[in-house]
């Protein structure tokens, strides 16, 4: 560029020879990147825009042809009617109990198992690890009927703890894989040093190991909370009472299985917005941790 500027000092910059090629070389790549970014934002964002705009569109306007892209008079009426047609606050509470309980139990049980599998050599350890991680491939639906019978026998259907048991168990394999790979990266010398200094196993775990793997445990807690917050099948099959149903079940309750035209999209979009908000907050807060946790679990 500078050479050309010397050769043609008086010409306007865009008329100098080689300007286009130089421009393309310099900005072509970033133009391409920003164009790709724009497409990416639209594809990801459009459904959210539509769900949000539907939730504040009066139901009379929502069923228009052509569709309404933005309401003429935004309203919160849909939210009000949604909270009147299902026990929204109770379901919200149930979802929180289900999500927090399941992720806590799964992280604790997986953390314990992962420590044993990563650090202690004992006969059968490989077989147990293999059985635990292979069970990730077992489809939930394939064991639903026997599970229902077992849970029924133990009076665990329609209980929070029953739902927490099955959900935390479902998330265990992935959590164990991630935590084993994390623990293996922590040098064992620290623990060996603690042994030599006379610490017992409980002290080693609570004072040495736990502080070291706390970030990984917290990451898995966030990921598992999102997964259980989103879970539909288990609550749908195992929760039939107002006191145990979660928001995702509430969403299906709003759906009229009958005709298309009676589907209350106004209320469904309002509830959808409420279901999205908590996961959005978690992502804003823990983006970096979640990305590393997901990648680690899938790569190992």
């Amino acid at each position: 560029m500078s050479q050309q500027a010397v050769l043609h000092p008086q010409a306007p910059i865009h008329e100098r020879p080689g300007y286009r090629a130089a421009l393309l070389a310099r900005y072509g790549e970033s133009v391409l990147i920003y164009a790709a970014f724009a497409i990416f934002v639209i594809v990801i964002g459009l459904p959210f825009y539509f769900i949000f705009s539907s939730s504040i569109t009066p139901s009379t306007e929502l069923f228009n042809v052509p569709p309404t892209y933005w309401p003429s008079v935004p309203t919160l009426d849909n939210y009000l009617r949604m909270s009147q047609s299902i026990p929204f606050l109770t379901y919200f509470r149930n979802s929180l109990i289900f999500g927090i309980g399941s992720s806590a139990v799964s992280v604790i049980a997986a953390g314990m198992a992962a420590y044993a599998l990563a650090r202690i050599r004992f006969p059968g350890s490989n077989a147990i690890y293999l059985a635990l991680i292979l069970s990730v491939a077992l489809p939930q639906i394939a064991v639903l009927v026997p599970m229902f019978q077992t849970f029924n026998t133990f009076r665990l259907v329609n209980t929070h703890h029953g739902l927490i048991i099955m959900m935390s168990s479902l998330m265990l394999p992935f959590t164990i894989i991630t935590l084993v790979s994390f623990i293996k990266q922590v040098p064992a010398e620290i623990e060996e040093a603690a042994y030599i200094d006379g610490a017992n196993t409980v002290q080693i775990i609570t004072r040495v190991v736990l502080p070291l793997i706390r970030p990984a445990l917290f990451t898995m807690f966030l990921i598992n909370f999102i997964i259980s917050w989103n879970e539909l099948l288990y609550p749908l099959v195992f929760a039939h009472t107002v006191d145990t149903k979660t928001l995702s079940v509430g969403l299906t309750e709003l759906t009229d299985p009958g005709s298309t035209y009676t589907k209350p999209w106004d209320m469904m979009s309002a509830l959808s917005v409420f279901m999205i908000i908590p996961v959005l907050l978690i992502i804003l807060f823990g983006q970096r941790m979640i990305i590393s946790g997901l990648a680690r679990g899938a790569l190992k």
Partner: peptide
């Protein structure tokens, strides 16, 4: 990188 997590995190039901 923040946006890319959103479709993964949003409930499948939604």
């Amino acid at each position: 990188r923040a946006l890319v997590l959103i479709p993964w995190a949003v409930p499948m039901a939604v």
